[in-house]
Amino acid sequence: AVTGSQTALLLRAFEKDRFPGIAAREELARETGLPESRIQIWFQNRR
């Protein structure tokens, strides 16, 4: 499950760019500790 702090970080990124590229998703994966594929799905679901 995604924690509150991970969600906050993802929401901030989403406000800046609703369609992040692979580099941005990989950076978010490093920052959150989540797999990049999970980040991609999160953005798809959020849109």
Rank of each mutant, 00 (worst) to 15 (best):
R47A: 06
R38S: 13
P20F: 03
L28F: 02
L9E: 03
R18M: 14
R47D: 05
F14W: 11
G33M: 04
W42L: 02
L28R: 00
E31L: 15
L28A: 00
Q44H: 12
R47T: 05
E27M: 08
A8Q: 13
D17L: 04
R38N: 05
F14H: 02
E26V: 12
S37H: 11
A13F: 12
L9R: 07
F19R: 03
E36K: 04
W42M: 02
F19N: 07
D17K: 03
R47C: 06
L9P: 03
A8T: 10
A23S: 10
S5V: 11
D17N: 13
E26C: 15
F19T: 05
A29R: 02
A24K: 10
A13D: 01
A13V: 08
D17T: 05
Q6G: 03
Q40M: 11
I41F: 10
L34Y: 03
Q6I: 09
E27P: 00
L11V: 12
A1L: 12
Q44Y: 10
A13K: 03
E15T: 08
L9H: 06
F19Y: 09
F19D: 08
S5I: 12
I41T: 07
P20T: 03
Q44W: 08
S5R: 13
L10Q: 00
T32P: 00
L10F: 01
E31M: 14
A29K: 03
Q44K: 07
A13I: 05
R38M: 15
R12Q: 11
R47I: 07
E31G: 03
L34V: 04
F43C: 00
T7E: 15
L34T: 00
L10E: 02
A29P: 00
P20V: 03
Q44F: 07
E26Y: 10
A13H: 11
E26R: 13
T32A: 04
N45D: 09
K16Y: 06
R25D: 03
F19G: 02
R25A: 03
Q6R: 07
D17R: 03
R47E: 06
D17M: 06
L28E: 02
E26I: 10
A1V: 11
R18K: 13
T3V: 06
L11S: 04
P35R: 05
S5L: 15
A24H: 05
E31W: 11
R38A: 14
Q6E: 04
E36L: 07
A8D: 11
R46K: 14
A23G: 09
Q40S: 08
N45A: 11
A23L: 11
I39V: 09
L34R: 02
G33C: 02
R47H: 05
S5H: 13
E27G: 05
Q40D: 14
G33W: 01
A13L: 08
Q40T: 09
F43P: 00
F14S: 01
Q44R: 11
T32F: 01
R18N: 10
R30Y: 06
R18Q: 13
L28D: 00
R30D: 04
A8V: 12
A29N: 02
R46D: 02
I39C: 02
P35L: 07
Q6K: 05
G21N: 12
E26L: 12
E15S: 07
G21W: 02
W42T: 01
A13R: 02
A24S: 06
L10K: 01
A13C: 11
I22K: 13
R47V: 09
E26W: 10
E36R: 03
L10H: 00
R46S: 06
G33L: 03
P20H: 02
V2Y: 10
R12D: 08
I22M: 13
E31V: 10
G21H: 06
L34K: 00
L9V: 14
Q40R: 15
D17F: 05
Q40A: 15
S5F: 13
G4R: 15
G4H: 14
L34G: 00
L28I: 05
E15L: 11
A8I: 14
I41D: 11
I39K: 01
F43A: 00
R38Y: 15
D17V: 04
G33A: 04
E27L: 15
R12Y: 08
T3Q: 07
R12V: 09
L11Y: 05
R30T: 05
D17Y: 05
W42F: 03
R38Q: 13
L34I: 09
Q40K: 12
S37C: 14
L9A: 11
E26F: 09
R46A: 11
R30E: 06
L9D: 03
A1S: 13
R38C: 14
V2D: 05
A13N: 04
A24N: 04
R38K: 09
R47P: 03
G4C: 14
